[in-house]
Simulated assay, not measured.
Amino acid sequence: MLKVKQVSQIVGISVRTLHHYDEIGLLVPETTTEAGYRLYSEENLKDLQQILFFKELGLSLKSIKEIISNPEFDHRDALMLHRKSLEEKKRAIIQMIETIDRTLDAKEGEIDMTDKKHFAGFDFSEGEQYEKEARDKWGDKAVDEAKSHVHKQETKMAERMNDIYRDLATMRDTDPASQEAQQAIATWYEYLNEMGTYSLDAFAGLGEMYVSDERFKNNIDQFGDGLAAWMHEAMRAYAEQNK
């Protein structure tokens, strides 16, 4: 048996959160001592793992409680479905990274790429199968709630990206290698690394695409004429200055 503080340290969530889960009946400790200490069993930890998985999918605590309290809920089935989702995300991310690498090589004249190969990694049809399985197991309400959460997160990310573009557009008349410009472009580098992993060379290579690919250039220049070219120079300078 583990005390609440021990569970908190092992899992990395606060004691207050565990107390809250107990109070709402989501994760009730196996037992409570006469002194009032909550004691958690191995089964409690398994339930907690599932709770955190479902939270990651964007489900509310109320929906999670309904799912895991269902007599037909099966830990193994849930874990397998979570694993399928993560494997699909992993496959898509790996393919996108490979697509970026091939695109960078193509820009340097090392390989030829078809238009179709430029978009490898953007087919999420297998994700639809995962969604169907999730709906069958946990119901439309839980899945719709999760999708709504993801959509809100994507909207927030898009809004933040647009804000960064707007801020950079106000600086496009400055020297791209200046300290002020470099501090601004660092925000873009940090944002990209929140979504994935960009080395300094990859960052500079992405900047090259902003001027060599008309699609990139036209989209970015919507925020201000010449922004794509300015970002290209600023990103190249940032890579050189931070190596």
Rank of each mutant, 00 (worst) to 15 (best):
V4S: 07
L27E: 00
Y238F: 11
D225V: 14
H149V: 15
A106C: 06
G196K: 05
E98N: 14
K117T: 12
A186I: 08
T33Y: 05
K147D: 13
G207C: 00
A35R: 14
K55C: 08
L206V: 05
F73A: 08
H82W: 11
H20Y: 09
L79A: 09
N44W: 06
E72S: 15
M231W: 06
E154F: 14
E72A: 11
E56Y: 07
A142K: 05
E190A: 08
N218F: 13
K107C: 08
E34A: 09
T187G: 06
E131M: 12
L79R: 09
L79D: 06
E43I: 09
D123Y: 04
A177K: 11
A158C: 11
E240C: 02
K243M: 03
A239V: 00
M157D: 13
L61T: 06
D173C: 09
E194I: 06
G25Y: 10
K117V: 10
I185P: 00
N218M: 11
E42Q: 13
V150P: 04
N218W: 14
D144M: 12
D163H: 12
L192R: 07
E214L: 05
Q153G: 13
D47K: 14
T31R: 12
D77V: 15
V28L: 04
M231F: 00
A142F: 01
R236Q: 14
D140L: 10
A181F: 02
Y198F: 06
T197K: 14
D163C: 14
M231D: 02
F54V: 07
R215A: 02
H118N: 08
L81I: 07
Q49R: 11
N162C: 10
A237F: 05
S212E: 11
E23S: 15
E190I: 03
L48C: 11
S69G: 11
E30T: 11
S63N: 09
Q50P: 04
L104V: 11
L27A: 01
D47A: 12
H20C: 03
D173H: 10
K3C: 13
K3T: 15
S14T: 15
I10S: 09
R160K: 15
E145T: 13
P71Q: 05
F223M: 09
W188Q: 10
V143Q: 01
A239E: 02
V211G: 02
